[in-house]
Amino acid sequence: MRRLWLVVVVTVLLALPRPAEAAAVDWQQPGPFAVVSEALDGSHTVFRPADLGGAAHPVILWGNGTGQVPADYAPLLRHLASYGFVVAAADTVNSGTGREMLDGARTLVAENARPGSAYFGRIDTAHIGATGHSQGGGGAIAAGADPLVTTTVPIAPGPLGWVPSLHGPVLFLGGQFDLVVAPLLLVIPRYYAAWRVPAVYGELAGATHTTGTGDAGGFRGAITAWFRYWLSGDQRAKDAIFGSPSTLSTGATWSKVLRNDLAREV
């Protein structure tokens, strides 16, 4: 009789619905937020969730490549905003100093404290990232030396910015066939200079220098996952970057991936 009851209990337990596993996220695809863009001040364009309600939103600072403007990168910036970020893009064709990018952060911090502002109480001032392409990638490194910035993603970065000054984790991105910012000469050495912080280098297979424009092609998912983990604490994004295996692994998509010792401990 006892054995019969055991069989019945086990059968019932097996029939109960199991907790749903967290669905894998394709970070290349748009996020859940509807997005709007607007002027922040006289020198920045913001891409942000249309509804800023709920939890405060982390910030991403953006720097354009030489001679380019935020509109040239709008698909990528809208994509990032669709994951809940407030993206402040510097309206300048020369963002390599990082100062223009940091000005956007300071404006948002001020707006967060100003009653009546659409951003009042809606900005997560403790979680601000910086990214950019080409000259703007160098600008992201320069901005990353400021205490306001907690993590950086330089995309095919120009020569500006001092990597040893970074105080937060960094993801360097390069294109396998980039002849303008050649990875072996201009990106990988900067990755090795980031030994004080968790650093990852990802080289996108088949990518050229222009891959970083528009929607950023295959770079887009890695950028999104990196910021979702470091700025939003999303554990699904952590697995995408640091899991084994991860979406940032050497193979058909990435021709080279490097992680320093601190990144391996994440």
Rank of each mutant, 00 (worst) to 15 (best):
R2N: 14
L4C: 12
L6I: 14
V9F: 13
V10F: 13
T11P: 11
A15F: 10
P17G: 07
R18N: 11
A20P: 09
E21G: 15
A23N: 08
A23Q: 14
D26M: 08
W27I: 08
Q28V: 11
Q28E: 13
S37N: 13
A39S: 14
H44P: 00
L52P: 08
G54E: 08
W62Q: 07
G67T: 13
P70G: 01
A74R: 04
P75W: 01
L76W: 01
L77K: 02
Y83T: 00
G84P: 01
D91H: 03
G104L: 05
G104M: 02
T107Q: 09
A110P: 00
E111W: 01
A113S: 15
A113K: 14
G116Q: 09
A118I: 10
D124W: 00
T125P: 09
H127A: 11
T131M: 13
H133I: 08
T151V: 14
T151R: 01
I155S: 02
A156W: 01
G161M: 04
L166K: 03
H167D: 11
Q176P: 06
D178P: 00
A182H: 11
A182L: 12
A182C: 10
L184Y: 11
V187S: 04
Y191K: 03
A194R: 02
P198H: 03
Y201M: 14
L204W: 01
D215E: 11
A216P: 06
F227K: 00
R228C: 07
L231Q: 04
L231W: 01
D234T: 05
D234Q: 05
K238F: 08
I241Y: 02
F242P: 07
S244C: 11
P245F: 00
T247M: 13
L248T: 05
N260P: 05
A263K: 07
